[in-house]
Design a protein around this nucleic acid. Structure first.
Lengths: 343, 343
DNA sequence: CTGAAAGCGCTTACAG
DNA sequence: CTGAAAGCGCTTACAG
């Protein structure tokens, strides 16, 4: 069966290719009656315009590139879900670029540029270099970051409000009577971790609690290191009664460390994480944590990107959105890992 | 900056567009010297052929469609990783079709057909209807399923060897002295669950243990139901000393049910799951489970699909691979949820 | 409101 | 081994 083309539709409906094209592209200057007739023929014959041909003729592609980190990141599923839910309402399709660890991140960008296919790019941030993205952006390709890690980049981005999230988490702990609260940090080069730390400090200060510097423990998101650091922390004579871990996986490490030291959660030690990755509802005890609105982050980012892609539908005068950084609201999910301060 | 085209390259290197095209497509009939010269110009000017134009001219697209279930599925990250790692060695790109729950699955397929973009389709199976895929396949679009759930479909597919996996799991339990072993089933309409059940039964039979029919407990992959069913099971006077859950999330539900009944794992009850989703290493106690080779499944599926796409590189005579079902080997990961039978 | 024509950037027989 | 020409299936001024 031969592919049916615009020429066939034109012939069958008794109009020119131009007219069919105008109908396809929703031009208002087609006579309503003609339009209806053409549409009928189109649907009767199940005609679908060739994407390749129209991309070539129009000089632009209906794709948005999405760069996702290879493995590990538990948040990509919900984010992707959010992105997909808005993209599917548009004529765009998503091209997936997975940055596997083997091949360098830059080569993914390269590949993307090479294909020249993406009208815009969504990147789920990992710990990647920002320069290639800035280049892209400079070349006029809209870029939106989801979950920025790097400190400040001049690229539009959407993430969760880490500062407020942390503040809320600490207040929860304070409300439970805790005063000796530790902060198990993530990599402090990440802006989100800086924000979480600030939230921790401010909440404490607001409550008139002086933070013990020894309770701010430097670590990173590596579970092994986190477990080790927590062990040391718990070995102190004046150990904390609660710890705020900068993300959920690190919180799991705290659970293990507590276990190692024979401490029960939440009876001997309260614990709150950050992220609310799916498994946090299933660990025992279930983790109290600050939930990031992953789905909404995906949605928001997709909308921002779409808005930034110059479209025929948009009035030419409109400016592309400024490179803003959006911080979406988090939710504290109270589960079983936090309880009243002991004693 | 204007896009540089094949015509520019031709002009600069002093050859015709045809020749440049032949060089791009690795035709052997270009003089090596000419080839080198053209290649030099290409790289000097950073020329990249327009994908849209070549797709149009060639009449086929360099895309493979990948359909993934919206949320929830913990295995898609590693599978996607596997797929990406092989696709990135080819000229193909991946178009991501996420079947969000809102919009029906069939519409995703429809959208895919509509774009007419995919030279082949990879689908990470959920509980979706197979008919649209069979249609696709019938229309000559290669389709490969990853992780087939449905019973038998006549589509090539790659999955884990559930039968052997289950058998190994049960043998592990038998070796630990367990005789009263329960099987907490998944939806038995799924072929993989049928296989797991067979593996359970056969391992028992081989060891000369008669399976108590009451120990085969029908359930599905819904945690709430699984927890309820397990509670009932544990309330029996002659309760089992071990349970084999047909997947990891259900195993988590067993943990909760055991907790509800004051039973400790593994002291009072041993537990093994199936899948080895990432969180299983983190639940307490860490779950002993049958690991599916997700990354390898993705790799294998991608290779099968690529092989099934008629390419100019393949000799015309070669037959497309038959619709086989591949079962990749699983690995039993022994962690903390299994121990010697009590008593 | 509609049609004829040129063009988007490649590829592919076909000559030579 | 190389080039001229036609064609892939659309879109877009330009006339009318």
């Amino acid at each position: 069966m031969e592919r049916i083309t615009i020429r066939d539709i034109a012939r069958i409906s008794g109009v020119s290719k131009s007219t069919v094209s105008l109908v396809i592209n929703n031009s208002p200057k087609v006579d309503p009656e003609t339009r209806r007739r053409v549409l009928r023929v189109i649907s009767k014959h199940n005609y679908v315009p060739s994407v390749a041909a129209s991309a070539l003729a129009k000089g632009k592609s209906p794709f948005i590139g999405m760069i996702v980190p290879g493995l590990t990141w538990r948040m990509v599923a919900p984010m992707n879900y959010g992105v997909a839910s808005v993209v599917e309402t548009t004529p765009y399709e998503i091209i997936l670029y997975t940055s596997t660890n083997d091949h360098d991140y830059a080569s993914v960008i390269d590949r993307m540029l090479t294909s020249g296919l993406s009208a815009g790019v969504l990147v789920i941030a990992q710990d990647q270099p920002m320069d290639p993205l800035l280049d892209l952006h400079a070349q006029g390709v809209p870029v939106v970051l989801i979950n920025t890690l790097g400190s400040s980049v001049d690229l539009p981005s959407v993430e969760a409000d880490s500062y407020e999230g942390a503040r809320t988490a600490i207040r929860h702990l304070l409300d439970l009577g805790h005063r000796r609260i530790a902060s198990l940090q993530g990599p402090m080069k990440y802006r989100c971790c800086q924000d979480r730390q600030r939230g921790y400090e401010d909440a404490l200060a607001e409550a008139g609690v002086t933070a013990d510097p020894a309770f701010t423990v430097p670590s990173d998101f590596d579970p092994v290191l986190a477990r080790e650091r927590t062990r040391e922390l718990l070995d102190r004579a004046d150990r904390p009664t609660a710890v705020f871990a900068h993300n959920d996986s690190t919180a799991y490490a705290v659970m293990e460390a507590a276990d190692d030291r024979g401490l029960r959660i939440p009876d001997d030690l309260s614990l709150v994480g950050f992220d609310d990755i799916p498994s946090s509802a299933h660990v025992r005890p279930a983790l109290t944590t600050v939930a990031q609105p992953f789905v909404e982050m995906g949605r928001h980012a997709a909308r921002m990107l779409l808005a930034a892609i110059p479209s025929t539908e948009r009035t030419a005068g409109e400016d592309p959105p400024a490179p803003i950084r959006i911080g979406l609201e988090t939710t504290l999910v109270v589960r079983a890992s936090t309880g009243p301060a002991p004693g």
